[in-house]
Design a protein around this nucleic acid. Structure first.
Length: 423
DNA sequence: TCTGGGGTCCTAGGACCC
DNA sequence: TCTGGGGTCCTAGGACCC
């Protein structure tokens, strides 16, 4: 029997590293990347971590620290990170077709059946990514995905390992697991970590040896799978084909509180348009649409949070149809007198476009000219930029738009932002 | 003043059917 | 006092991931 073997390639402090690639002055500086709306820190360089800052901290709480330590703060620049991610994944695909792109900065590779020194192989991958993109990555290797994740975690924390660690058949396997807190295990979140700690299960080795039935009962089947994976029994296969999404959400918090229905209608138009665009990118159609509206739960003022959904007569991917429905839902949800923080649109009951039902009495998305119109709009927007062609209800007040006050240039996706090299 | 966004899976409980 | 037994489908809520 050929034993499974997985490598997890993970970019170190991905967003911060992307900013650094194009701005070498940031080397060795503490860097923080902000969420949408410049709200919280979502990514940190090691230097910022060393100052005791953690993911999720609201940036306003760091004002003093930022000044004191010359911390460089950036709004998130997804067109830059998305483009850098694509470059890394392309390099990995060159090594193997057995590649699962797990997130913007992580990928699993299958090393099944490969002979030779895996550490040397991983070193080579790591060096090539560094050389071709400028990004530092860590690579963990193990007999299951969960153990590959742990190996990666170990690689990141030990300078001596130079970014690569293979945990398979390691002579000090137990010792290594005993040093990993359960909260760092893939699949164990804050709630489960608390539960485990309460029951005296503090590290990965203890979890590995925990009673099966108890785990099944308290952590469900998912938790049991995690334990098996820790024992080196691979339960999670590489997912080579990306499954179509079951729901698509588009929503944003507003830069400033919004009170007027008109502004909410404009925001809803923007998010609904984007959601249906994503639906078409996946070549899917949907029949369920939901709109939700909330005030700011952190503020000590009158609160409102509600949602409303409706069903289209037939599955569709025609934006105007969704727009009409979502604006109607919004009008129904809206109550004057509140300061709103966020509106969102969710699309579900998704089926492949190819499985659209036929209807004798009304044209479907495919039969009439709707699909052709959407294709046309999409290709123009793709070439000329998002919302180059937009729906009138998007308006032009922009009262609802998010804050992005510390955005770096779009170094790789806009000609006018290309970095210049001075002769 | 200032606290993100976009997903997935599992389970329990209710509705409804025979 | 006693109060069937399944099956299926749907939804809400809770957990997780990045």
């Amino acid at each position: 029997m050929v034993r499974d073997k997985f490598a997890l390639v993970d970019c170190n402090n991905f967003y911060a590293s992307c900013e650094r690639v194009f701005n070498p002055a940031l080397e060795h500086k503490p860097i923080g990347i902000l969420s949408n709306n410049d709200g919280i820190i979502v990514a940190l360089s090691n230097e910022l971590k060393a100052l005791g800052v953690s993911r999720g901290t609201p940036v306003f709480k760091l004002k003093e620290l930022i000044k004191k330590h010359d911390i460089r703060i950036f709004s998130s620049n997804y067109s830059l990170y998305g483009d850098m991610s694509a470059r890394v994944m392309k390099i990995l695909a060159y090594y193997t077709p057995d590649l699962e792109i797990y997130s913007i900065d992580e990928a699993f590779l299958s090393l099944r059946g490969m002979a030779g020194n895996m550490t040397a192989y991983a070193d080579q991958i790591r060096n090539r990514i560094r050389q071709w993109t400028g990004l530092p990555v860590s690579i963990g290797i193990g007999p299951s995905k969960t153990l590959a994740k742990i190996a990666n975690h170990v690689a990141k924390r030990n300078q001596r390992l130079k970014g690569v660690f293979d945990i398979s058949d390691h002579p000090r396997f137990n010792e290594i697991l005993a040093a990993v807190d359960v909260k760092h295990i893939w699949g164990i979140g804050p709630q489960y970590a608390k539960l485990l700690h309460r029951n005296g299960i503090n590290n990965a080795l203890q979890l590995t040896n925990a009673p099966r039935d108890w785990i099944r009962r308290k952590l469900t089947i998912m938790g049991l799978r995690t334990v098996m994976e820790l024992r080196g029994v691979s339960c999670l296969e590489l997912e080579l084909i990306t499954e179509p999404k079951k729901e698509i959400v588009s929503s944003r918090s507003f830069g400033n509180p919004v009170t007027k229905l008109q502004d909410l209608r404009e925001a809803t138009t923007a998010y609904c348009t984007r959601a249906v665009e994503k639906l078409r990118e996946e070549k899917q159609a949907a029949s369920q649409i939901m709109v939700y509206l909330t005030t700011n739960r952190f503020r000590n003022e009158r609160q409102y949070a509600n949602f409303q959904s409706t069903r289209l007569p037939l599955p569709s991917a025609y934006t105007p149809e969704f727009l009409q429905a979502s604006l109607k839902l919004l009008d129904y949800l809206y109550r004057p007198g509140y300061k709103y923080k966020k509106v969102g649109v969710m699309i579900s009951d998704i089926i492949p476009e190819s499985q659209l039902p036929l209807d004798f009495f009304q044209p479907t998305y495919l039969d009439d000219r709707r699909k052709a119109i959407m294709n046309c709009v999409d290709s123009i927007n793709q070439k000329m930029g998002m919302n180059m062609l937009a729906y009138a209800s998007i308006g032009n007040s922009l009262n609802w738009q998010m804050k992005r006050e510390m955005l770096s240039p779009h170094y790789t996706t806009r000609w006018e932002h290309l970095p210049l090299v001075k002769a």
